[in-house]
Write a protein that binds this DNA or RNA. Structure first.
Length: 416
RNA sequence: CGGGGUGUAGCGCAGCUUGGUAGCGCGCAGCGUUCGGGACGCUGAGGUCGCCGGUUCAAAUCCAGUCACCCCGACCA
């Protein structure tokens, strides 16, 4: 992508109505646009990050046997009445609307009920289990107060997976597999070092649920972390009893702020009983399906990555999620320089390397500042100088100094 | 939902106390000089001062209401 073609622009200062670092930087760099409090549009650069995150999540979900689908955002009240979650006093984040004939509808804040109800059409025998389904879906939640930029909006994208198992044993095995898959995902997006499995409240169904918490001051949660065991306890359930139950040493637990990037739940058979999702086992007996639910906030994850890695100059994307791999800057507009820069842009692009090409012919300071702000992993400069000695200049976003190297060396670095 | 704060040009802000018909920086358009870390000069375009009502000869400025936004708290199976 040539910057002369990209319709978004960078802003020198952040809009005054944003305090959250992730939103400030993402807006300044042109990744997102704020429509209203807690509601953001995702622009070309932002979509590329989201798609990269989704690709990784999708690969790992598929790897554990997840099957992708897309539910609808319009929901029937009767399903939620069955589980007593339609009433605003029970779930206070509902957006509700009506059809023209006055039929009430809910706008999806979650999909457990509809998806589980749908599965009744496909699950009737033990032969149909297990079944694990997931989607990337927009959730709408009427939060009392939106905050923290894209880390907590009223509209956000979530990957939610639901597992339907024969029994507790099959469920637990899958649950453990997903735990591992989640850790892999967070490692792949670059957050492996600061993301921890965290024991949290389990709701009405089980003693605990498991959260995946990324340590960052931008987070809204407080967790007690044992770095050696890579385990943490959410403040919600932080008691001596729980510490003992988990075999942790209270003196080694450190209180830190963290952002919840994933959450997995066991529902047992409670929900399948409420919604009547059952199957016939080998002996002809009716059994209820064992449920699990597994979420990752995709847009929140993008915000957390932005927060965790940003420096005073701007965003710093890990390579796996960066919108582009290379930020090519052309300095000077001599014909030979333009030719060389264009050639490199085409060469890299044709090699399947994603390049954003600053062909705007600005003063260097501005181009460099924008490159720092956008946070693309590799910065490459072609200038009159580099062309004269048949080299180019390469710098990683995370390193302070540029190096003069040959094109062959650059290709090796980018492909290696 | 409780508390605090803010709405003036695309963005960041001043002006408001003490009413007199809107200004600065950046950005944008044109010309020229510059050109390896956000250059400079000249010219120009751009504003329902959030909205509604009131007071007044006169309201960005005072009063009342309302909407939006931000922060803290509560909330977040």
């Amino acid at each position: 992508m040539r910057l002369t073609q990209l319709f978004t622009k960078t802003l020198r200062s952040a809009p005054s109505d944003e305090q959250a670092l992730n939103a400030q930087l993402l807006i300044r760099a042109g990744f997102i646009y704020k429509e209203m409090a807690g509601v953001y549009a995702y622009l070309p650069l932002g979509i590329k990050v989201l798609e990269n995150i989704k690709r990784i999540v999708r690969e790992e979900m598929n790897a554990v046997g997840g099957q992708e689908l897309i539910m609808t955002n319009l929901q029937r009240p009767d399903l939620w009445e069955k589980t007593d979650r339609w009433d605003d006093s029970k779930v206070d984040v509902w957006f509700k609307t009506k059809l023209q004939n006055d039929t009430e509808l809910g706008l999806a804040w979650s999909h457990e009920e509809p998806i589980t109800d749908m599965m009744r059409s496909y699950i009737s025998s033990y032969r149909d289990l297990p079944a694990n389904v997931y989607q990337f879906q927009t959730k709408l939640r009427n939060e009392l107060r939106a905050k923290s930029g894209i880390m907590r909006g009223r509209e956000f994208v979530m990957k939610d997976m639901y597992s339907y198992s024969l029994d507790e044993k099959q469920h637990q095995a899958f649950y453990d597999t997903v735990t591992e898959a989640y850790l892999k995902i967070f490692t792949r997006v670059g957050l492996g070092e600061q993301t921890f499995v965290t024991y949290s409240s389990g709701g009405a169904f089980t003693k605990f649920s498991h959260e995946f918490q990324t340590v960052t001051d931008a987070g809204e949660d407080v967790i007690y972390l044992d770095s050696d065991r890579k385990l943490a306890i959410n403040k919600e359930v932080y008691t001596d009893e729980v510490i003992e139950h988990l075999g942790l040493d209270k003196s080694k637990l450190k209180e830190v702020k963290a952002a919840e990037v994933g959450n997995i739940f066991s529902f047992g058979t409670v929900k399948s009983e409420e919604l009547d999702l059952s199957y016939t086992d080998k002996t002809g007996q009716k059994k209820f399906v064992v449920l699990g639910s597994y979420g990752i906030g995709i847009t929140r994850l993008m915000g957390v990555i932005a927060e965790v890695f940003a420096d005073d100059k701007g965003l710093v994307w890990p390579e796996a999620v960066a919108p582009y791999k290379v930020h090519l800057i052309r300095i000077g507009d001599k014909a030979s320089t333009v030719t060389e820069a264009d050639k490199l842009y085409n060469l890299l692009t044709e090699a399947g390397i994603e390049v954003i090409y600053d062909d705007r012919n600005l003063r260097v300071g501005e181009s460099f500042a924008d490159a720092d702000l956008l946070g693309i992993p590799h910065r490459v400069v072609i200038s009159d100088k580099t062309v004269a000695n048949a080299k180019l200049e390469w710098k990683k976003r995370t390193e302070p100094e540029a190096k003069t190297i040959s094109q062959a060396e650059l290709l090796k670095i980018l492909e290696g």
